[in-house]
């Protein structure tokens, strides 16, 4: 049986065209503040406020290496939750020696929670009855805005800009041609309406909770989610891509993700999860270092041989 989410919405392209056009009407208006507490002898940290759709003020952690650039850039997209770290937990802080890093706090997250403070659980279904009101419309735009800011920094090497994260890394790469490299782990926005009923684990359980309370809104929810489904973003991705798939048999294993993999236009490497933050994380670091032409990957001490 074909469901609403099996087919690309007829207005998918115009929807995202309109979002980007609306975003472009808001000046970035960056405010950059030194963060001495997070600065080191090898990198200077800044807090950046900038405007996104709404208008809505966002926050980001920017780190610039000491010395002459330009430098390759890592754009860290947030996971689902209230906290964005300057460098994702567990990764080497040493990556700031030779990369510009930028981590964005999207609307609803801490430091970007005025006036909208998201609830967790809760954000995944906020405004989900309509693509025009779904909170992820703004969140995806926030991620685009952050990338636009990063790519315009004079310290950044425009030939080496990586978007790194879960679903939002892929949507950002799809909507921003400035992204040259992509490390993505599809998590929540791939075939969401089909996969949610197969789990009771949060965050997808939020969808189940919502539909249990509002069963008559199922079609509307499916329609909204289809506008954010990674399957329809794949053909827009031209970046060299590392796609982190689930282990065989997982809901989002390589077989399940094959339609997306087939659509990505950039050189694509698929890594099957080994259920090890060390092995999976090291693989991603080595992949990126090789593509960026770095002498060594950025590995924390316990990941080194």
């Amino acid at each position: 049986m074909t469901t609403l989410t099996d087919v690309k919405p007829s207005d998918f392209d115009s929807y995202w065209h309109d979002v980007l056009a609306e975003l472009a009407r808001f000046p970035v208006a960056p405010e950059v503040q030194d963060l001495p507490l997070r600065s080191t002898d090898f990198a200077t940290a800044y807090g950046v406020r900038l405007t996104s759709l709404g208008p809505y003020r966002l926050y980001g952690y920017l780190s610039i290496p000491t010395g002459d650039g330009p430098f390759p850039a890592r754009y860290h997209l947030p996971r689902y939750g209230s906290v964005t770290d300057l460098v994702p937990q567990g990764q080497a802080n040493g990556q700031r020696r030779d990369h510009v890093t930028f981590a964005i706090c999207v609307r609803g997250q801490r430091l970007a929670d005025q006036p909208y403070a998201a609830a967790f659980p809760g954000q995944l279904t906020d405004g989900i009855d309509d693509p025009a009101t779904y909170v992820y419309r703004g969140i995806v735009a926030d991620c685009v805005r952050g990338l636009q800011y990063l790519a315009a920094r004079p310290e950044v090497d425009a030939t080496r800009i990586a978007a790194i994260g879960n679903d939002l890394a892929l949507t950002t790469a799809a909507l921003c041609p400035q992204v040259t490299h992509l490390v993505t782990t599809p998590t929540l926005l791939y075939a969401t309406a089909e996969l949610a009923p197969r789990t009771s684990a949060y965050p997808l359980e939020e969808i189940n909770d919502y539909l249990r309370s509002h069963p008559t809104r199922r079609d509307a929810v499916q329609n909204t989610l289809s506008h954010f489904d990674l399957r329809w973003f794949g053909s827009r991705v031209s970046a060299a891509t590392l796609l982190m798939a689930g282990a065989d048999g997982a809901a989002l294993d390589a077989a399940a993700l094959q339609p997306l993999i087939d659509d990505i236009r950039g050189e694509t490497t698929v890594h099957k999860a080994e259920h090890s933050g060390y092995r999976d994380g090291r693989y991603a670091e080595e992949w990126l270092a090789e593509r960026f032409g770095m002498a060594e990957p950025s590995l924390p001490p316990h990941w080194q041989d």
Partner: peptide, 13 residues
Amino acid sequence: LTDAYPYQEIADY
């Protein structure tokens, strides 16, 4: 032992 956050917060401090 590590340069990763969150413990890096103490080193920053």
